[in-house]
Each structure stands twice: as structure tokens, then as C-alpha cells.
Design a protein around this nucleic acid. Sequence first.
DNA 1: CGTGATACGTCAATATGGTTGACGTAAAAA
DNA 2: TTTTTACGTCAACCATATTGACGTATCACG
Lengths: 166, 166
Amino acid sequence: MVDVKKRTADLQGSDAQIAFDLIERIFFGYRDFVGVADDALSQTGYGRAHHRVLHFVDRHPGLTVGELLTILKVTKQGVSRVLRTLVDDGMIEIQPGPYDRREKRLSTTPMGHDLARFVARLQTARIESALESLPPGSRQVVADFLAGLVDDEERPAVLKRIAGGC
Amino acid sequence: MVDVKKRTADLQGSDAQIAFDLIERIFFGYRDFVGVADDALSQTGYGRAHHRVLHFVDRHPGLTVGELLTILKVTKQGVSRVLRTLVDDGMIEIQPGPYDRREKRLSTTPMGHDLARFVARLQTARIESALESLPPGSRQVVADFLAGLVDDEERPAVLKRIAGGC
DNA sequence: CGTGATACGTCAATATGGTTGACGTAAAAA
DNA sequence: TTTTTACGTCAACCATATTGACGTATCACG
């Protein structure tokens, strides 16, 4: 009887402290949110890595390869194949940097831009649908929450980049 | 001049419609949120796949392999190596189903339970930190938003599973 | 001018997390 | 008894990433 009480107390303590609900909502929400893009792009033969590169190059025309690596937190080898594919397919253009010609300035072609926008619109639809039934001000709450998940050291750079847009 | 006006109008229209801000906050927020678990588990030699299996088995003791595959939306081959590793390491136990002995009922050992809780607490800390400065009621707003990102067909099952806990 | 650092590319090997297909076993259900 | 189910496993393969080593073009500085 003492054992049962103890174990029950332990469980209640743990369950009260741990945000299982939000942990799992983040998991399933993200899974299906990226699934929107995965499904749309799988028909073109592209995967998640292609999507990430296409998205950020489209959002930041003139981005250098090094900046892209910083944003995605991957190595140059990690994007080389994906980037080459997108360039070969005519989705992304490369131009030498205007001041430093060692740089490769990346930008989307009209075709690449359209594909990036197509996917972004699908994801926007999912977001708007999720916000639809929520009270006014929820958009800001969600935006702040998501920013709060980012590492403290990274947050300033991330928010600046997002606000910067192009 | 006409061209410029047209392109400007197009751009404004697109930018207003597309939720770049939230799309990217979801990307960076999720990246660092799972990074919390990745970093903690990388020291034990486990990756993201191990974490997912450990988490859901811990949350749903007595889960069968088939149910785990449904939750994670992967194939049995996709989890077999990871699951075997966790069993070999003494993190997860297998018992035959009480009524159907073909089933393998999965549950965490005390050691596996502690590891799962350890990571869940780290993730909870990140979540609470993100909610800290937000107005009251934000927790529910965020929870509803995340549920809204889930596929419509999946949502009932997902919410039931999360609520069920165990 | 030469020297070193920088931006980028590439080759090779390796790891992780998956996939499909084929085949097998044990147990339940008909 | 036969069929279906729950699970496992072998093999082959794919996508995405890593580290390390090496090369090349370009810039910046003494």
C-alpha cells in the first residue's frame, strides 16, 4: 500500500512536470507540415534537401554558398550534390560575386522561383488553416513560441534573417 | 515602366500571401528543438531514430511493434535495427502479447525509462522557456496550432493517442 | 610581387535512417 | 486443416549527411 502510494506520487510528479502533450504535438505537427512539401516535391524527383536549398536561395537571392551552409548548418559536401542537381535542372543560377569573384552568388531562375513559391503557398495554406479557428493575436503567439524554441545564441541571427526577407 | 509596375505588384501580392515568417520559424524552431534531444543522445551513441522509438515506447508501455510502425509511419525494416539495438542495450523489453502471443509488447526498462524521461525533461525545459514570456492562454493556442498542422485524417488518431498518454 | 588566407569544389570513405521485395515462422482464426 | 496475421530477416538499394584530404581560383597584405 505504501509502495502504491509512492509510485503514484512519482508518476504524478513526473507527468505534471513533463510537457508530453506539446512534445508530441510538435513532432506530429512538424511531420505533417513538412509532409506537405515532401509530397509536392516528390513528384518532381526532389527531396527535402532540395526543398531547403531551393527555399532559402529563393528567399535570399544572391546568397553565397557559404551563407547557405551557415543557414542550413550542413557541410559543403552535404549540399554539393543537391545544389548541382538544382543548377543542372535550371532551377538555380550561379553568378560570380560582384566584388569577390571567388564567391558563387545563388539565385532561382523563373522556373525555380515558381516551384519555390508553389510549395511555399501549400505550406502557407496549412498554416492559415491551423490559425483559422484560433483567437486574434494567435499568429504572434505562435511566432514568438517558435522563436523561443531556437537556441539562444542563434535567435538574433535567425530572426534578423527571417525579417530581412530578400 | 509598365513592366516594373507589374512586377512590383506581383511581388507585393505574393509576399503578402505567403507566410514566409512562420514557415521559417517552424523550420528553425523545430531544428533546435530536436537538437536538444540529438545532442543529449549523441553522447550515448543513439540518434534521432533511437530517440523516437524510446520516447513512444516509454509513453505507451505494452505497445506492439505494429502500433509503433503506425505511429512513426515507417516500415518494420526501418525500425528493426534501431529496436534491436535498444533491446540489446537493455533499454527496451519485449514480452509476448497476453492474448495474442504473436505480438511483441514493448516497454522500457528502468534504465530506458530514465533515459527517455531525461530527454523529455530537456525538451520540456525548452518548451517552458519559450512559453515563459507569452501571455496566459498561449499554451493552448500553441497546442491548437500544432494540432492544426496535422493532416485532417490523422488528427483524431493523433490527438487521442497524445491524450491517452498511459 | 609573393605569401597566406579565403571561397569553393571534389574525391573517397563512412554513417544514419530509411525504402522495397522476398521469404520464413509462429500463432491465431476460419 | 487452411488461411490469415504479426513479426522477423536477408538482401539490395537510396537519400542525406558526415569527416578528411586535396586542389584551384581569387583576394588581401606585407
